[in-house]
Nucleic acid binder design. Structure first.
Lengths: 247, 247
DNA sequence: CCATATTATTTGTAATACAAATCAACTTTA
DNA sequence: TAAAGTTGATTTGTATTACAAATAATATGG
């Protein structure tokens, strides 16, 4: 057949991720068929129940479609549930330098400035406190760069952005912030390592926080747009066609 | 216990939707627990296998979380996978006049003008042809308003918007357009019935199409923003905090 | 050659048994 | 007494087997 996992333990989680990655990485192409459930269960040495469980999950993520007596056929990327947390995590690892990354940065450039604007109007004290805490963590990590962290604290950076989306008060944007952890990690980590001026990036984040605190929504929008533009530039990419307010 | 479906047939799809709606409508509140799997299977008169299948689906949509010996606990709206097609469909029916509708319109106002801008740069001939077809259907339905359609063809309107998102060339926006069918239906149908000037709405859509055809991305952005502003106004709502280009 | 019926294959549903995890109560021990 | 460990009960997780339902492929009859 195709292949089987190597030294890693055979359980539901691992088989699921293994199959998902085969599809994401194109080792199993769209419109191909998977072996039937019994064959898969024998192949991996688990019960058909577990295989069905795994296939059901793959189906809910848009990777496959199943039909009685037709079998299991693999779907193209257009059917994948890209905003699923796990799908995003697996995809980020595989498709770094492709259309996927550009689409993701475009989406961030569209969503996050607006999220900052809304957050300036709607953030409560808890949100502001959280933002302060994460900003402080970022600032601390920049201070003592002599340690093994040769760049800004990625985790704090991620949570800073996520908190702003939460604070937007919009159910969809808030949930979006919850699911794109892995995606933020890949873009932020790489850009933070690539940037030449960490201090400048830190100040850019601080300026966003101040705008939100001052309830200046348009300024928060502009400053978040600035942060993201820097991120995109540091990654050596460029986006076209996104309409942003000037200055 | 709580209750059971009435005259409708007992099958997987119906039980799933029934339980989902109980949660969405708040009849089962967050942090409450569902009966255990055996109790549920006896309650509905189906096997535990099927109940587990249903619970697994509810879990993948973020409605519930399961743990060994803890049971099944219902999650709050912040955990729901709002961009799942079925979740959106069920939610739209239940939460029309709430925060949900406003969040949805905000999201449309953020995404769709940018989608139009990108489409102006990236749409191919097939996309343009599709847009023309859907526009024509809308125009036809306006012509012969004497029939039972007392407003513009909702289906064509929906597909018009979806096609623009597809044509944006952005993987996430494209997929977003694929999943929010039900949500578009609710906003578009209601606004089309509420609007006083159908002809004006039709022309607004035509102007978007022309901008995309002329590859004028900023104009497409502005005109789509105009379409959505009208939609929001016709629904008697208003959004604040979304930053849009002027004029 | 075409239409119909049969057969085989594959996913879907069911029933049962046991495994694993975890909470709660109880027992033991320092 | 208090802390730690043991045991038992409850609930979800996994496995096995059997059969149902749907559909493609094949065979059969006119």
């Amino acid at each position: 057949m195709f292949l089987l996992p190597d030294g890693i333990p055979v359980n539901k989680k691992n088989i699921l991720e293994y199959l998902a990655r085969l599809i994401i990485e194109g080792k199993i192409k769209a419109d191909e068929s998977l072996p039937n459930e019994i064959a898969l269960s024998e192949h991996f040495g688990v019960s058909r129940t577990m295989i069905r469980d795994i296939l059901k999950t793959l189906e809910s993520k848009g990777f496959i479609a199943r039909k009685t007596n037709i079998g299991t056929r693999v779907m193209s990327i257009h059917s994948w549930n890209l905003l699923d947390e796990e799908v995003l995590e697996w995809s980020c690892g595989a498709l770094t330098q492709s259309r996927f990354l550009l689409s993701l940065l475009e989406l961030r450039l569209i969503i996050e400035p607006q999220a900052a604007s809304l957050a300036a109007l709607r953030a409560n004290d808890d949100h502001l406190q959280e933002l302060h805490n994460y900003y402080q963590l970022m600032a601390d990590s920049v201070e003592k760069q002599d340690l093994d962290n040769d760049c800004m604290d990625t985790e704090a950076d991620i949570e800073f952005h996520r908190t702003i989306m939460k604070a937007s008060g919009n159910l969809f944007i808030s949930q979006f912030g919850g699911t794109i952890r892995a995606a933020l990690y890949h873009t932020i980590y790489r850009s933070n390592r690539a940037t030449e001026n960490t201090q400048h990036s830190l100040e850019a984040h601080k300026s966003v926080l101040e705008s939100i605190e001052n309830r200046n929504s348009e300024q928060a929008y502009l400053r978040m747009a600035n942060v993201l533009s820097n991120t995109i530039r540091d990654l050596g990419l460029q986006t076209t066609g996104i309409i942003l307010l000037d200055q």
